[in-house]
Design a binder for these strands. Structure first.
Lengths: 341, 341
DNA sequence: TATAAACACGAAAACGTTTTCGGAACGTTA
DNA sequence: TAACGTTCCGAAAACGTTTTCGTGTTTATA
């Protein structure tokens, strides 16, 4: 690569000092019009642009936001990144993306790479393994130094920082309620293992709705799916039983889509024999038959909110209270829950 | 945010020079064991890490790869990023992601932000508007300076740089052939507008297969979808006609999924009345009924290849020929093309 | 004509690092 | 004791920028 042109080179070209060149390019009145013009013309011709590393070092500011997510090939997470990126760009920031791949170790190493001065702040959704280990010392190190940090979706309540979550409890509550209103009596819950916060919150909403409607809880209807094992086989055990449930609430789209597929394999009519609703991350729901009802997650808004909180935190001069923003959900009703009876 | 600890602070703590501290932390034999140990203990206690901006400036190397893509909420592109990110991480690079949103202006502004010294090289998939305008001066500026650049998927043949594409012609050829082998006589092509390179290449493969099988080309069966207009309505015009085609090749998953949905609305039996195959970007195909056959694109390998080419280019000392890697495709056959007759 | 203001520019510090070179202090050897 | 080698450390340059504070020259004012 050809070396880029610098102030120094321009200066030596005209036999003036570096500071003269810098001022000339900034249209400073300290420099005579004549000098100014010739320097600007030259810089323009050679397409001079200030080296951003040098600026970052001098200003002690990178204008870069670091983002650490568990996965990137994932509709929800990529939607959140989209929100972050758009808001950041609008505010003059760039986005550096790292993927933890659900691994504690990779998360820690991402932390250490990004917090060496290359970003002004961090937006993180916690890796599954980290939640499992319950090991947060890498976060605490940052928090001790007041490093700008925003957690989203997979958060930890204990950590003292800004947070953005969706209304998981409310979303599951609404969805369960909707199933009950449409006649469901025996609602299975397809959730994650307990240590995933969003999974347990959605379970809470599910239980709340059962309770409110006077339906007793059957622990056998609560299935904790292990993402490391075969989804299809696990969900098969929910549906290929003697008396299958008459409705299913799944905590994500993949569980729901698999449930639908399997229910059809068992020749169950949807939604008449079994209604299905999922939390949505994606495009699948629209194209299944029947199309899947879903709890809409608004990942884009979530990303924007996270970026807004972070940038405020970065640019503020004196510390303020940590905020926790809750993005509300809504239902998108499609045929998988709308009884045709 | 608390100011980070620097060599200077450590030096003043012990009344030694900055260079002594630097050497001590690097276990230099120039520094006495005693001094070394106490400095290292102190640095360790305060969790000293070298400021990466300073290092980047000094070494004239950022170890950051810039990526500019048209969209991020997109299965194919996010898969490519995944490949880039994983390879980059393995090689000690970080990834900075910018989204052009299919806009020429945003692409240009992304270019100018990223090439100010904040990245060592760039991986780009060209925005739709840029291809439409046929305006590549921002690329040419970089190429003139031998800036490390890799294009993928949406490329421009004229630009002198490394490239990675999938075998679009071959993929479409295989898919069309497959349709013909399963009895199709009247195959519609759902493609993009001409200026999108991948669209026209896939059209080429389609034509080639027709030709080879002695089927004459009917221009009326080639539909150029405009992504800015309503997809559903456009695709409806393909299927709700007097004599609908008996097979459809779609150049992406969304077109295919919509076609399938619409064909079902017209009560056509799939694949007996109409067979459908798409190029895949996603998860939808697996969950439609019947599941969609697809041309598999291998986005992850594409990302890895792109990153590998770029990093080689960055680290090489003397210029070498530009390479064009072609990732081969394969068919994933599902029920949407497997006649049950 | 002496003094002040205006103009045009340069020197140097600062951001945080690494590395080369030089040098003082001490010990060893002929 | 003169010459030489070690050992241990500091000064300074370099990466590229911005900005403060001089400073010398010219022009205007009293």
């Amino acid at each position: 690569m050809k070396p880029r042109i610098t102030l120094k080179k321009i200066a030596s070209e005209f036999g003036v000092s570096i500071s003269t060149v810098s001022k000339a390019l900034k249209d400073s009145h300290e420099i005579s019009e004549e000098t100014r013009e010739k320097i600007k013309a030259f810089a323009d011709y050679y397409n001079y642009k200030p080296n951003s590393l040098a600026l970052q070092l001098r200003n002690q500011k990178t204008s870069v936001i670091g983002v650490i997510i568990p996965e990137i090939v994932h509709h929800f997470f990529s939607t959140v990144i989209d929100g972050i990126e758009q808001y950041a760009t609008k505010k003059g920031y760039n986005v550096m993306v790292c993927v933890s791949n659900e691994s504690y170790e990779k998360e820690v190493s991402n932390f250490s790479v990004l917090t060496n001065g290359s970003v002004d702040g961090l937006i993180v959704s916690i890796a599954r393994e980290t939640q499992h280990k319950n090991e947060y010392s890498h976060f605490e190190g940052l928090i001790k130094d007041d490093f700008p940090l925003v957690l989203f979706d997979r958060i930890n309540e204990e950590l003292a920082c800004d947070k953005v979550i969706i209304d998981d409890v409310g979303g599951a509550f609404k969805a369960t309620n909707h199933l009950i209103e449409n006649g469901a009596k025996k609602i299975a819950l397809l959730t994650t293992q307990d240590f995933i916060t969003v999974g347990s919150l959605r379970k809470e909403g599910y239980l709340k709705a059962l309770h409110k409607n006077g339906i007793s809880v059957d622990e056998n209807l609560i299935y904790k799916i292990d993402d490391n094992k075969d989804l299809y086989e696990q969900i098969k055990k929910v549906i290929f039983v003697k008396n299958p449930p008459d409705a299913i609430l799944a905590v994500n789209e993949i569980y729901a889509a698999n449930a639908l597929k399997i229910a059809k394999e068992r020749k169950l009519s949807i939604p008449n024999d079994i209604a299905i609703i999922g939390f949505t991350d994606g495009l699948i729901s629209e194209f299944t038959s029947p199309p899947l009802s879903e709890v809409v997650q608004h990942g884009f808004e979530m990303g924007q909110q996270a970026a807004e909180l972070l940038i405020k935190r970065i640019e503020q001069t004196d510390a303020s209270e940590f905020k926790k923003e809750v993005i509300s959900t809504n239902l998108k009703i499609r045929q998988s829950t709308l009884s045709t009876k």
